[in-house]
């Protein structure tokens, strides 16, 4: 689905991503784990075209998208749920969800999809007329994911969806992610919460100072010495 091929990214003179190669297959959940400032967010921003790589190539379903603007990537079904939710705080829940479908040709007939995401997140249905800025962090995170889903993504990219959430909500989000993948969506999940990410994913990559230092089957990584010590804390 999405593929990074030897991608380098610089912020001014800082070399923040070093020859990152990774791929997410169709209907697959892939986790990208790493500490703060390891380069997870930069990887995802590069995927969406918010940051241009200095070397390497990006492919979406085999097509080179390295030079495509963000809009075109979204149109092709690549959707990012950004770090820190980034919901439109002065919009209601319903208005936020509508913005999620901004690029759709059928954007004036989205009721069925609205009902679908409300079914997925019943709490959003209760608060559909409430301003997003007045909701709790967990609700905002659900809204951010739901807003992403309104764009009918084929590949959903999630940046730290568990950040700052109570364990019960983290579990709820993990369940949602698994459910979306069983419906055929490809998911790239960047997480500091390695336990949650590895629990969802089939495969995982470990990012350290901008380099992929480990990769492989999520179950194997879960039991590997390094990952257990550094990221799982046991």
């Amino acid at each position: 689905m999405i593929e990074f091929d030897g991608v380098d990214v610089h912020y001014a003179k800082n070399h923040v991503l070093k020859a990152v190669s990774l791929s997410v297959g169709a209907g697959e959940i892939v986790a990208l784990i790493g500490a703060n400032a390891a380069g997870k967010t930069t990887t995802l921003r590069t995927a969406l075209g918010l940051k241009a790589p200095t070397a390497g190539a990006l492919r979406l379903e085999g097509t080179d998208i390295t030079k495509l603007p963000t809009v075109e990537r979204v149109r092709r079904g690549l959707v990012l749920v950004p770090e820190g939710r980034q919901v439109f705080v002065k919009f209601t829940v319903a208005e936020n969800l509508m913005m999620g479908g901004y690029l759709r040709k059928d954007r004036d007939r989205m009721q069925a999809d609205l009902d679908r995401v409300y079914a997925l997140f019943p709490r959003l249905a209760e608060r559909r007329a409430q301003k997003a800025g007045s909701m709790s962090g967990g609700e905002q995170q659900m809204l951010a994911i739901a807003r992403g889903l309104m764009g009918k993504p084929r590949c959903l990219v999630l940046d730290e969806p568990s950040l700052g959430l109570a364990p019960i909500l983290v579990e709820e989000i993990a369940n949602t992610v698994r459910r979306l993948a069983t419906e055929g969506m490809s998911i790239l999940l960047a997480e500091q919460n390695a336990a949650m990410a590895l629990g969802c994913a089939a495969r995982a990559y470990v990012l350290e100072s901008g380099k992929i230092v480990l990769q492989g089957n999520a179950r194997e990584l879960e039991s590997s010495e390094t990952v257990r010590k550094l990221y799982l804390g046991h």
Partner: peptide
């Protein structure tokens, strides 16, 4: 939407 959050608006397309 852009006035509230430029980057999120860009991510919506």
């Amino acid at each position: 939407a852009y006035a509230q959050n430029p980057e999120a608006a860009e991510l919506m397309g």
